[in-house]
Design a protein around this nucleic acid. Structure first.
Lengths: 151, 151
DNA sequence: AGATTTATCTTCTTCAAGGAAGAGAGTAGG
DNA sequence: CCTACTCTCTTCCTTGAAGAAGATAAATCT
C-alpha cells in the first residue's frame, strides 16, 4: 500500500470494503434473478440452518402469505427444499439443498479471488484473519438481531 | 460436511461471515425504509464518489426514468444532494450529503462493535487485516463489474 | 444561426412483492 | 370423542418500483 496503513483513512478503507462486499452480493443476486428478500432469506438459512416457514417468515419480517411464496420461489429455483418435520406433521422444514444452484456459481469467481488472496498469507496471518472473521460475524449477527427486534 | 479438527471449516466460517455482513446491511436498509436498489446506489456512490444520474443509472442497471426517481427518493430521504455541474448546465452531480442520515446512524452499533474488535489487535495484526480489506475490496469490485457487464 | 446530439426529467403502463383474511390439516387436552 | 389451538397454504387486494416513450433544456457541430 502506498500510504501508511495507520489511522487516516482506515475507516474509509473499511467502508469501501463493506460496500464492495454488499455490492458484489447484490450484483450476484441480480444475475440470478433473485430478489432482495430472497437473498436475505438464503442468508438467514445459511446462518441459522434449516427452520420452519413460520420462523423464516419471522426472521425476514414477512407475514405468512409472502413467506409461502418466498419459499416457493427459492424451491423452484433449486436453492431450498421442503421436507416434512418428523415430530409434527403440520410442520415443514425449509433446508438449503445439498447442491447449491446458480448463486454459488455466480459467486465462484469472487470466492476464487479471495481464496488466492488468502493463500498469500502465512499461517499466523491467517489465524488473525479468521479470528477476525469469526468475531465480526458474531458482531454483525448481533447487530442485525437488534435491528430486527427494534423494528 | 467434513469437519477437520485444527482447520475448522475455513470456508464455512468465511461464508458465515459474508452472510452476516450482508444480513446486517439488509436489515439496516430495511430499518431505514430503503429499497434494495437504493442501498445498491448508495454503495456505488460510496465507492466511486459523486457522479451524474446517467452514470448512476448505468451502474445500477436502470433506465433514465427509474434513475430519476431513485435519486428523488434518496434526496428526499436526505442521503444525497443534486448539485448543478459547473462545466455543463444540463448535467447534475449526485453526491452523498455531508451529514449522513439514518443509515449511518443505524449502522453505528455494528461499526462500534467492529471498532472494538479491531482495537484488540496489535499494529502488525492490523496491517494484515487492512491489507486484506484493501485487496478483497478490489477483488469484489472487480467481480461485481464482471457480473454487471455480463448481464 | 440551424440541426443534431446529449442529459435529465415527466407520464403512463406493467409487474412483482407484501399485507390481510380465511381455509385445510394436524396436535393437544378435557 | 370433541373442542380449541397451531401451523401452513391459498386468495384477493394494494403498493411500489421498473420499463417505454416522449418532452425540455443545453451543448456541439456544420
Amino acid at each position: 500500500m502506498s500510504t501508511t496503513p495507520g489511522q487516516p483513512d482506515a475507516g474509509r478503507l473499511y467502508r469501501r470494503y463493506l460496500s464492495a462486499v454488499m455490492l458484489h452480493g447484490h450484483a450476484s443476486a441480480k444475475a440470478c434473478d433473485l430478489g432482495a428478500t430472497d437473498l436475505y432469506a438464503l442468508n438467514v438459512l445459511e446462518l441459522s440452518g434449516p427452520m420452519t416457514p413460520g420462523e423464516l417468515g419471522a426472521r425476514t419480517g414477512l407475514t405468512t402469505g409472502p413467506t409461502t411464496r418466498l419459499i416457493d420461489r427459492l424451491e423452484q429455483a433449486g436453492y431450498v427444499r421442503r421436507v416434512p418435520a418428523s415430530d409434527d406433521r403440520r410442520k415443514v422444514i425449509v433446508e438449503p439443498v445439498g447442491k447449491p444452484a446458480g448463486l454459488d456459481q455466480v459467486m465462484a469467481p469472487a470466492r476464487q479471488k479471495v481464496g488466492e488472496i488468502l493463500a498469500g498469507y502465512s499461517p499466523e496471518q491467517l489465524d488473525v484473519l479468521f479470528d477476525y472473521f469469526d468475531r465480526a460475524a458474531r458482531a454483525y449477527e448481533e447487530a442485525a438481531d437488534v435491528l430486527r427486534s427494534g423494528v
